[in-house]
Design a protein around this nucleic acid. Structure first.
Lengths: 388, 388
DNA sequence: TTACTTTGTTTAACCAATAGACAAAGTCGA
DNA sequence: TCGACTTTGTCTATTGGTTAAACAAAGTAA
């Protein structure tokens, strides 16, 4: 067993984490304000801030306005103390970013993926990571880690269990990358990373319970509960694309019937009758912009089915906010209306009251930024305590 | 903000909780074993155990077998240090139990409920609680609290937001009961309480991620994540009965269509064609025992639809175990087969691998025992720390 | 009887948070 | 300009928890 036991080191870790979080959230602010906000003693705050300054994670930016007494010495989280790399593997391309510790993008790379075999992708990825690391400005910590978002199921050890669209099974990606790069790596499911990105830097910033829907070639979702990513018993909760919304519906490759993603993802393009003018969301969006009636109708249908699935998830999870991301978010103008109508008709009134539905603020970068944040989070090492 | 900050008192609370949990789980065992299992220093364990003994929560039961050295002095959690009362409000009756701190039932009461108005139910409940409290044996702490399981949505403050079957809305039940009884009260949703009961004392004992399905007049579910009950943004996650499994299915009173509980709960009895010989599960079960073909077929159909909904939840939550409870669990022999077939056909293989489906071990007492445990849990005050 | 084990307690040291005193640096009214 | 008051941040002694290490207690085995 040997769970985490309590000692003074833990106390210090907890309080340091509280102080750092408070500073990032309410910056710029004084030590006195931190003390007031956290309930920690002024002396304690002073000591911890001193240490954070020594470690370059917090900076003093000079005096602020006095309100009838000594001027406060304002503190700031030093996002420039280090960088992180985020990578997203998509079906036809790989994207990567270099961010600072606050999630600001410093550099961006993109590359087409002609092949999907593991060794090729790994090689491409290594090159991209090294290129991005090379662009990192000088900083106390340098690149603190690499985060990767993958369209597939990932366990807690960073092994890719199953990525049907890439044809991978049981790939120990974290280990492989760490051995190659000699730096800390975290692997996440694409939707989970997207959830983290929007939760930390995008449309979900002040929601403790967030549901992120990644709609594209399939549907995945990332669930944030109590500010933490929920990963399920073996690390792959959120495979909601295979939720049944028609008990006797069309057969899915997963073995189930009537799966949500057969009705509300890009998978609908192939089976549409009569055939759609394209099978790519980007082109269909431009058709919709020219008011192509069939395309507009198709998007509305997808919106309707999206709403059905979202309703199910909302009734089960009771989130504060639902964020819709992924390639289909580009079709927002044509799907949002139908979706919102269905959701407001179908969800239980008490759920609706506390829930908002929004679209991703980070656009197509939700996942890649979320992946980078996974690495940052690991570096900063947050601690959570809950007393019941 | 003023979150929980770290200080020595917190450390002590954490470690006391760890020690107490270790003793309850691995009892009987020695101080040395506790130290080894927890990683805490022997001296720390000795001190904390001393204090727990002083508070009558732990007892020494004498020496154990020596293994080549001094004989260990074996410790036991003292479940007799206090009692708790658990109450469950059902549609036609109220049941109550008096338990010790280990969930053992010491006394049991049952009463028919002719009416559902709040004041009548409250009065009946008060009488039952006082009767049960009167039966409590002498103990250091006496009755430490009362837990209530209610068929409806409950917020974090113990207010019943909405209980359609009882016709209640916005009832501040916890406050009302505490004022009347002068003792700590916790209110939980019926399915959440059931989940706690099975998780702590029944079929879910060693599952960290548990999904409890309460199937009866409707379907509710309790979700335990990481050993903790998940309650959602405002305290009422798990309203899974209103999950759509037929996008264009029958209309439900909730405003949605094709809700799960229209196909897999006692609600199916009314609309069956030709009419079933009864509309009560108990009687239908006895018909099934006499191999009444229509009833057997009806149960199988319900099992099939139960399976569809369970598949959805499993794909979303990836639990370690699914426990099926509630009145419909009595029809297990006729629903289990169809349900299991559907689940094994439909769930993603990776989910299936780590998941078991079982039926409630506490029978019809899951909820009432779980409600009592809520009160016990509040009294013992567990603390959880997670470092990421 | 002796050597070795295992259990549990005692002791002194350590260290983080804290209250409260205090120093530093300001505002504001007369 | 002066003095009273405020606010910020540091310093000091105290408290109270964990810990390592020594030690005492109580056993086994040869």
């Amino acid at each position: 067993m040997t769970s985490i036991t309590g000692d003074q080191a833990l106390v210090k870790k907890i309080n340091t984490s509280i102080v750092l979080n408070t500073i990032t959230r309410y910056a710029p602010l004084s030590r006195a304000k931190v003390s007031e906000l956290t309930g920690l003693n002024k002396a304690t705050v002073s000591n911890l801030v001193q240490e954070l300054c020594d470690h370059h994670l917090v900076e003093e930016i000079g005096p602020g306005e006095s309100r009838g007494g000594r001027k406060p010495r304002l503190l700031l989280f030093n996002g420039k103390a280090g960088c992180a790399v985020g990578i997203e593997i998509r079906l036809t391309q790989m994207v990567g970013v270099l961010t600072d510790l606050e999630g600001n993008i410093l550099a961006e790379e993109e590359k087409q993926l002609e092949r999907h075999d593991l060794s090729f992708v790994l090689e491409t990825m290594t090159q991209m990571i090294q290129a991005l690391m090379g662009m990192a400005p000088a900083s106390p910590y340098g690149v603190v880690g690499v985060g990767v978002g993958v369209p597939g199921m990932v366990d807690g050890e960073g092994n890719i269990l199953y990525a049907p669209n890439l044809g991978w099974e049981m790939a120990p990606m974290r280990q492989l990358l760490e051995d190659k790069l000699g730096i800390q790596v975290t692997i996440d499911n694409e939707a989970n990373a997207g959830a983290q990105g929007e939760f930390r830097f995008g449309a979900g910033r002040d929601a403790k319970h967030l549901l992120y829907i990644s709609a594209g070639s399939g549907i995945g979702s990332g669930i944030i509960i109590n500010g933490e990513l929920y990963k399920g018993a073996r690390g792959y909760a959120g495979e909601t694309g295979h939720m049944t919304i028609e008990a006797d519906g069309r057969a899915c490759t997963c073995g189930n019937r009537g799966c949500w993603e057969l009705y509300a993802s890009e998978k609908t393009y192939a089976s549409a009758a009569p055939p759609l003018p394209s099978r790519h969301t980007r082109e269909l969006v431009s058709h919709a912009q020219h008011e192509h009636p069939q395309v507009v109708r198709h998007f509305a249908d997808m919106g309707r089915f999206l709403g059905v699935g979202i309703t199910n998830l909302v009734n089960s999870f009771n989130p504060q906010r639902v964020v819709i991301g992924g390639p289909l978010a580009d079709a927002r103008p044509w799907i949002a209306g139908a979706m919102e109508t269905v959701v407001s008709q179908r969800t239980l009134p008490y759920h609706r009251e506390v829930m908002e539905i929004t679209f991703a603020e980070l656009g197509s970068r939700s996942t890649v930024i979320g992946a980078a944040y996974s690495a940052i989070s690991l570096f900063l090492g947050p601690v959570r305590v809950s007393t019941m």
